[in-house]
């Protein structure tokens, strides 16, 4: 049951024209700068912003056929949405917030509450059912909002900056839990975020939206290796690694071991900033703990910098100045030594 979008609508000064397909059990992250039209896209899919032209279809059902065409109102779409400001009902206890969607679909009060209770337990808030939203912490409110969207058994899931209102310490855990809930959800999932790491950690595919248009879409690897605009390069410019961490050593999936500082044990995600990677003609002799040889796979100019794709263990992308390229005589197929400080590898639990 895939979701096919051809969204054409004007909202204020912005003309949105976005084509996108999201498969069943697929999470697509919409990333882009503020005011690019990311949230408007979600509103259109939810039925809160009717299309002028174009079409939104879920499997064979047309949800919006543009002006004059068929239009399924939001209450009949069963599109679960998590709003950026959460918009929990302040006058209802957490459990009644979660039960709201079930009650709206005619489920009896007792059954709805029992189901809501179960959802609260699943998001780790079994004890907070009676609490009013105003007395919950940011992370707890986030979980209630997620449970509320999921409990209504939606056919697709729309998440607008689901981790925006959470502080850094709860963010990691919440992200991991959110990933688990997304994986367990059977329909298409659309996720809006401005945070590249959230997109990497949660999505299967990324669509970069700028000024109302998709400027680039593809797998994380595709986007990372060939950013097509300065914004994308900055956004996804981070090297993104998965692996297993034991005793300060990160065994990277696909080969290579990195020494890292202060890392959790077990399955982890790690990011390395391309500018934190140093390149040498010969084996360097200094403080960096990680030194390995690599072949130069590609050189790409991105703005005022050159991105150097390094085939080694692990594979990484480094960013250097054009001057450094000239001085080191870097060329495709050549060999360089790569140096990376342990402190420059940011590791977090997967």
């Amino acid at each position: 049951m895939s979701l096919r979008l051809d969204v054409q609508v004007r909202r204020g000064p912005l003309q949105l024209a976005i084509e996108l397909e999201v498969g069943a059990r697929e999470t697509v992250a919409i990333v882009g700068p503020n005011g690019a039209g990311k949230s408007s896209l979600l509103l259109a899919v939810a039925g809160l912003l009717p299309l002028e032209r174009g079409r939104i279809a879920l499997a064979d059902e047309v949800l919006d056929g543009g002006a004059g065409g068929p239009f399924v109102p939001p209450e009949a779409r069963r599109a679960g949405m998590m709003f950026q400001d959460l918009l929990l009902f302040p006058h209802l206890a957490a459990i009644d917030n979660v039960a709201y969607g079930l009650r709206a679909r005619g489920v009896g009060r007792a059954v709805a509450r029992a189901t809501a209770d179960e959802w609260l337990r699943r998001v780790g808030l079994a004890e907070h059912g009676a609490a009013l939203p105003g007395s919950l912490s940011g992370g707890q409110a986030q979980r209630v909002a997620l449970a509320r969207a999921l409990a209504a058994s939606p056919r697709l899931l729309l998440l607008d900056e689901p981790l925006a209102a959470v502080d850094a310490s709860t963010r990691l855990r919440l992200r991991r839990d959110l990933r688990a809930h997304l994986d367990a959800f059977a329909g298409p999932r659309l996720l809006v975020t401005h945070d590249a790491v959230d997109a990497f950690a949660l999505a299967d595919r990324i669509a970069v939206v700028e000024a109302g248009r998709v400027v680039q879409a593809g797998s994380i690897a595709e986007i990372c290796s060939r950013p097509r605009s300065r914004y994308v390069a900055d956004l996804v410019g981070l090297n993104f690694l998965r692996g297993i961490c034991r005793g300060g050593r990160l065994q990277v999936d696909g080969g290579g071991t990195l020494i890292v500082s202060q890392a959790p044990e077990g399955n982890v995600l790690a990011t390395v900033h391309p500018r934190a990677i140093a390149l040498y003609r010969s084996r360097p002799d200094g403080t960096p703990r990680n030194v390995w040889p690599a072949a130069i796979e590609a050189l790409e100019v991105a703005g005022d910098r050159v991105r150097v794709r390094l085939r080694g263990e692990p594979w990484l992308v480094a960013e250097v100045t054009p001057l450094a390229v000239a001085e080191l005589q870097l060329g495709i197929g050549g060999t360089v030594w790569v140096a990376l400080k342990a402190t420059e590898v940011e590791v977090f639990a997967a």
Binding site: L43, A46, G47, L48, P73, P74, E75, A76, R77, R78, A79, G80, M81, F83, D85, L87, F89, Y100, G101, A104, R105, R148, A149, A152, L158
Partner: peptide, 18 residues
Amino acid sequence: FDRRHLAAAATLGAGPTR
């Protein structure tokens, strides 16, 4: 009153009267 709460209610399946 913040009307966006009505948008939230609509996505949860509530019609205008509810």
